[in-house]
Design a protein around this nucleic acid. Sequence first.
DNA 1: CAACGACATGTACGTATCTACATGTCATCC
DNA 2: GGATGACATGTAGATACGTACATGTCGTTG
Lengths: 200, 200
Amino acid sequence: MSLRHGLLGLLAEGPASGYDLTRRFEEGLNTVWPAQHPQIYSELSKLAKAGLIEVDSHGPRRRIAYRITDEGLAEVRRWLAEVEVDHSFRMDTLLRSYFFWLMEPEDLKRRLGEELAYFERFAGALREHAGSKDRGEWGTSARTRAQRVGIEAAIRVNEALAGWARWALEADLMSDENFGNAADRDASAVGTQGEAPAGQ
Amino acid sequence: MSLRHGLLGLLAEGPASGYDLTRRFEEGLNTVWPAQHPQIYSELSKLAKAGLIEVDSHGPRRRIAYRITDEGLAEVRRWLAEVEVDHSFRMDTLLRSYFFWLMEPEDLKRRLGEELAYFERFAGALREHAGSKDRGEWGTSARTRAQRVGIEAAIRVNEALAGWARWALEADLMSDENFGNAADRDASAVGTQGEAPAGQ
DNA sequence: CAACGACATGTACGTATCTACATGTCATCC
DNA sequence: GGATGACATGTAGATACGTACATGTCGTTG
């Protein structure tokens, strides 16, 4: 549902084709809202039919650039100002963390190490990108500076997750020595199907 | 695709019904992986057909409890240890932040204030929940402690976002006085459709 | 014993999303 | 002038997901 508004938001910057928009998503928006080209093209058709965007120009190689209409601009602004934010999100990494107790300690350490490396690397790349904006390499328009705020959010989330992975690794919470005991392990349901309690 | 494994992971703790699992999701898992009951029930049917879970017992009120099979346990462990983590995620808040430049300063401040309040409140609730686990109110099994690690991740992400909203508000980045100038504003595409450059 | 509310499971339907496949266009390079 | 690769847009089909609706079961309470 938000892809619709994401596309309108990008088109508010100026006319663009489905191909352009697909690349914009690949270049960064993908990290907070994944979208593939078939979805983008079909959404553009719907937006055009709804009168929120219109064809701006036909270019070489069948290129079709769209432009946002006044109604489209009003709609994206209404969305930003009035529609309630959906705070739910799905994150594979965090879902998996609920099941860490099922993993072998070595597998878990390896996995946490991979996660740490990933989040650090990605946060670093974002920070570098943010630095180039800070140095004014992308101009100093209100748009650029506002987008810098969005990048900051992504940086902070990725750094928080890197910090979490480091904490989990250093605390060594899952190792046998300082984590749980034989009685705990026997009481867990792993491998004792049928006699385990239903419960919580 | 991960709901399947999420359900297997929960069933690894012991037998549970669709109703139980729905409540488990509502009680916290929902924050990292939303799921409604129709999806859960239909996924349980598929898992049973695939032999990864089986009926454990029939209870009062048509209750059907499922139990994980050896193949199911092997599958969830394979997923945890071998399947690559999907680092993409979709977060409405962050998508919107790319379009902050389209908002009126007052609307933006209000919105950032709401976001700050939400993330602080939610992080606080999670921290309290984590505290009760730390105090041993949920036992000290390996499972409980591992789940505590998952909660820590959620806390850190929510705190990071609260910090971001506070930073954005305090920096007052979007206000006219210290943000952009008339030339910048004129150069932006807002309200100047048709003459704006394709951007980026 | 009627009403209510929590427990418990499902169907129907529309939309969103993903993967794979298909096709056409243009410039460049050998 | 043929091959290649980037540009550019789409279709088909399967799965995932969300909302709304429907139904049945049991215990408690007035």
